[in-house]
Design a protein around this nucleic acid. Structure first.
Length: 946
RNA sequence: GCCCCCGUAGCCCAACCGGCAGCAGGCAAUGCACUCAAACUGCAUACAGUGUGGGUUCGAAUCCCACCGGGGGCACCA
């Protein structure tokens, strides 16, 4: 690659080389910065600019998923999306929009902290250094960001508003009837006014202060709970469900994760389950991402059904109340709270041996099973190959419809945390229940008629109900289909008081506290009762204090019994604080957990809108302009959000949740943060291992006849990520040095559709380089530096090509198909290189159309074409429709599916003329036979069936 | 195991609502020009019938079914 940059004496003096590109690029980057070229005017406030060429124009908010600045810097894969949004934003600016495009940094969180621990420096120091490095790398690429709007989540002025939003969430409750969040002040008013009964029915005035606080706290959208959480000793912190992999390890660091009961902050995201699910329909997002969110939220509708027992009724959740007549046994999770009360002293008479697990009594059996289940890690449960295990509790329940005795089992295939932790097992219509029933020889009663010839075990499809009538109880489902049977069953249960229609969720409340240092402190203190108290807005921000030892306390990764210790708790002088919160100065204890990394990214797009606002996170007028709905029914939000699919659930779900809370409270005007989402693909790379399995530098490997060699050694090729340890990293800096930023940009945009992952191939970059050299040559004579542009009109063919390309490029740009747009520009350029001189009427539109992809060279050529202002706000070319219609059309003529001839007819020839001409052309093939059918596709082809 | 996405020249990719598969484009290859020679640059050439097998249709890369291969998600969620 370095040879491209090597100055050779016989290279024409005015050729577009890497050295010239670098000079041009630095010059224009300085110019843009000096002139504030990419500043987008706000409607109001310090960032307003009524004289701006796009002030008051139709807005367009283009957003990237902001980066987490790692110590390793960027490789060529990272900026793919950023370049894509920049090309789109530059195009839209030229097309008349007021475009907001900014770049900030997600800077709190585990990796920064871990990296800081490794290097022994403060996380802030390393984080800020990394940010500077990223900024320099990104600036070199010529990204047109409004740098005034750049924020980082660790800015005190940023996280004061993160804390402020936390307070909004904390001070709200979800009114299920109104389907929205409301301030807790309104809840208290309803309690005290008697409009809303207290949980135990006593009048509000009779509750003690502590009791009132507890009632209110139970409603808050942010609350402290003591519940089973994911404790990760290796990281020294708890983790959200979304951060734990399926095999029970931490997504970051791959440490074991254990379930522990710990006191933690939670956010009541489950209250928004319906809206998070239903509002997906309003979003212009890739379907797979919507599907992943739907699956994650996991709404199941069905019924809660009570099965009476001697102890208490067992409440089960089922999605199939229509199969209740097939419920031949119950299963509780081993941890279910009723188990101890249910288990009798001895096995009932006639208990089968297979049910007892070989134990003399049910108590031992249950105890042994519980112990075995608890000892199993999730890994082991998987390794068990789904062999169903369980044990009989010795207890029976009464079937709620028939009254028949139903044996109760415990088994670990029923999860404590989902539904009610208990199920009614219907082995005929559920595969898991069927597998269990086979092991324990339980009866299988079909209640849905399977289709003819069905030989499987459980039949989960639809069909008429059978064996589903109890005349004495007044319930008959026989003959009904799924939906009707469900409805009738639920109706009966509700009328008889045996159950109720119910919805459950896979989604759990969001665990919001972390036992780390490098995060936003909570704006929370505790009084002498131990109950949390929110600090008033006036005390924000709560600044993250300096500590001697910012590294968290981590433990033996396998030590499940260890307890988290927060770094902030070691600063006793910070933790113990005297404050006046309204009733005089008192001693309080600060919350020492910090917020999770996701907090800042939940709302950063709102701060870009108005980064200097001091009294609010953003002025409402600015928020409404950039984020507000654009038409009735529109959800609002950013007009384009580009990032990787790895955030399909975590970030995008949390962010939507916060945004909806802010919407409910009247702080934002859109009910979704990101109207349109686009997932860019990944740039992947080949890596090579030698026979010992060690990675060798990828750039030194050569291909010989489909085999790969490093020196004399044959090496094995693998395909995957780019990474230091894989020795296959190529950086944007390398590419800028060898070819210039414009070439790098064009290459990344032209190598395939933005949404598709593809392999990096350094040697192919030269194609984009040659393209820009040709563009350069259409305007500048390489030998003399003189202009090659003429004011003489273009010939007809060139002019038609130009307008065809303009039309195609516009369509491609709107659809984010940059690879095909660039191909058309190459086509146009190749058309021009054959000409002795370049007509200005073609050169200017070409330069303008190249500008979104290669902005520096375009600016330079624009200047050489005689313009003295940046082309950033020049009008993007518009095709002349008259030049798009061809004068004549060539129709291929098919006979029985094979092309047998071609006819050229005037473009406006009527169909019967086309038909007649076509038939004439293939008369020889038809040999006098009368065609059975002739199909004329206007503008396309003629198909004859002989 | 279930769900989603994708398979087009040696490689990355085009092909609009089913309508001539590539004078969409690029890399690599080959030849020629430039050069003392090479690199750079330019010009030219060749290369697949769309993963496999069925089906629908006048017509299928495109729609449907099955299978094969690659990538991703979920993993006993009742």
């Amino acid at each position: 690659m370095s040879e491209a940059a090597a100055p050779a004496t016989d290279i024409p003096p005015f050729r577009y080389t890497a050295a010239l590109a670098e000079e041009i690029e630095h010059r224009w980057q300085d110019t843009w910065e000096r002139e504030g070229t990419f500043h987008a005017p706000n409607p109001t406030g310090p960032l307003a600019d009524p004289g701006h060429p796009r002030a008051g124009a139709e807005k367009l908010y283009v957003l990237d998923m902001f980066p987490y600045p790692s110590g390793a810097g960027l490789h060529v894969g990272h900026p793919l999306g950023y370049i894509g949004t920049d090309c789109y934003a530059r195009y839209q600016r030229m097309a008349g929009h007021n475009v907001l495009h900014a770049m900030g940094f997600d800077a709190f969180g585990l990796p920064a902290e871990q990296y800081a621990v490794q290097t022994g420096t403060h996380p802030r120091t390393t984080t800020l250094a990394n940010i500077e490095r990223y900024k320099a790398q990104l600036r070199r690429l010529g990204l047109g960001h409004d740098e005034r709007r750049s924020v980082t989540t660790i800015d005190t002025e940023f996280y004061r508003w993160t804390q402020w939003i936390f307070l909004q969430v904390y001070n709200s409750w979800y009114d299920a009837d109104a389907r929205r969040a409301r301030p807790v002040a309104e809840l208290i008013a309803e309690f005290s006014g008697g409009a809303r009964p207290t949980p135990d029915g006593r009048p509000w005035a009779e509750l003690t202060v502590a009791e009132r606080r507890r009632v209110v706290d139970d409603h808050r959208l942010a609350y402290v709970s003591e519940a089973p959480v994911n404790w990760c000793p290796g990281l020294g912190t708890v983790l959200a469900n979304e951060e734990v992999t399926a095999d029970g390890r931490s997504e970051r660091g791959n440490f074991p994760v254990f379930k522990r009961n710990l006191k933690q902050w939670m956010m009541r995201i489950t209250a928004y389950g319906d809206r998070l699910l239903d509002d997906l329909d309003t979003l212009d997002w890739p379907e797979p991402i919507k599907l992943m969110q739907r699956n994650w939220i996991g709404r199941s509708t069905g019924a809660h059904i009570d099965f009476p027992t001697d102890a208490a009724a067992v409440r089960v959740f089922t999605t199939r109340p229509d199969t209740i007549f097939g419920a031949t046994y119950l299963v509780l999770a081993p941890e279910h709270e009723l188990v101890d009360a249910l288990v009798p002293a001895a096995w009932p008479a006639g208990t089968r041996d297979a049910w007892t697990g070989g134990h003399a009594g049910p108590r031992e059996a249950v105890e042994a099973y519980r112990k075995a289940a608890a000892a199993k890690t999730d890994m082991e449960r998987q390794a068990d190959n789904r062999e169903k295990t369980g044990v009989f509790t010795g207890a029976y329940a009464d079937h709620p419809v028939t009254g028949a005795p139903v044996p109760i089992f415990i088994a670990d295939y029923v999860l404590a945390g989902y539904g009610t932790g208990a199920i009614m097992a219907v082995p005929a219509e559920d595969e898991r229940d069927h597998a269990f029933a086979e092991v324990f020889e339980l009866p299988v009663v079909r209640t849905v008629q399977p289709p003819e010839g069905f030989t499987g075990g459980a039949y989960t499809g639809d069909g008429p109900r059978i064996n589903s009538a109890a005349p004495a109880a007044g319930l008959d489902l026989n003959g009904l289909g799924l939906a009707d049977a469900k409805a009738r069953a639920i109706g009966w249960l509700e009328a008889e008081g045996r159950g109720v229609g119910a919805t459950t969720w896979r989604l759990r409340d969001w665990l919001f506290s972390r036992q780390r240092y490098w995060g936003e402190p909570f704006p929370i203190v505790y009084d002498e009762t131990g109950a949390p108290i929110a600090l008033p807005e006036s005390m924000l921000p709560v600044e993250l204090p300096e500590v001697d030892d910012f590294s968290p306390k981590t433990f033996d990764p396998e030590d499940a019994a260890s307890n988290p210790e927060t770094p902030l708790s070691r600063r006793r002088d910070w933790v113990e604080v005297e404050l006046d919160l309204g009733d005089g100065p008192k001693r309080y204890t600060r919350e020492t957990n910090v917020m999770p990394q996701w907090a800042g990214s939940c709302w950063y797009e709102l701060r870009y809108v108005d980064p200097t606002a001091a009294d609010r996170f953003a002025e409402p007028e600015n928020e409404a302009y950039w984020m507000g709905p654009q038409r009735p029914g529109d959800c609002g939000g950013t007009d384009l959000y580009v990032g990787g699919a790895e955030h399909a659930v975590l970030h995008l779900l949390y962010s939507r949740f916060w945004h909806k809370v802010l919407f409910d409270l009247g702080h934002v005007s859109s009910f979704e943060p990101y109207r349109r989402l686009f997932n860019q693909g990944y740039i992947q790379a080949y890596a090579f291992t030698d026979p010992r399995g060690a990675y060798v530098p990828a750039e030194e490997v050569v291909e010989v006849d489909g085999r790969w060699f490093h020196g004399e050694t044959e090496v094995r090729r693998e395909y995957g990520k780019m990474g230091k340890s894989l020795r296959n990293v190529v950086t944007p800096d390398d590419m800028c040095a060898a070819y210039g930023a414009d070439t790098f940009r064009v290459y990344e945009m032209s190598m395939g559709p933005l949404e598709v992952s593809r392999p990096w191939e350094t040697r192919a970059v030269v194609g984009s380089y040659r393209f820009l050299q040709r563009v350069w040559r259409t305007v500048v004579d390489e030998g003399t530096g003189a202009s090659r542009v003429t004011d003489a009109p273009a010939d007809e063919a060139t002019r038609r090509l130009l307008h065809k390309v303009i039309d195609g490029v516009r369509v491609d740009m709107d659809a984010i198909r940059f690879n095909t747009a660039i191909a058309k520009l190459i086509e146009l350029t190749n058309g021009l290189t054959r000409l002795a001189e370049t007509p200005r009427e073609v050169a200017e539109p070409l330069v303008l159309m190249v500008a979104p992809f290669a902005p520096h060279i375009a600016e330079e050529l624009w200047r050489r074409l005689g313009h003295d202002t940046s082309l950033t706000y020049a009008d993007f070319p518009v095709a002349d429709p008259a030049l798009l219609v061809a004068e004549s059309v060539t129709y291929p003529v098919q006979v029985n599916g094979k092309v047998r001839g071609r006819v050229e007819v005037p473009a406006d020839a009527p169909e019967d003329v086309v038909r007649a001409t076509a038939l004439e052309a293939v008369a020889g093939v038809l040999a006098g036979k009368e065609p059975r059918k002739v199909i004329v596709v206007k503008g396309r082809m003629v198909s004859v069936v002989a």
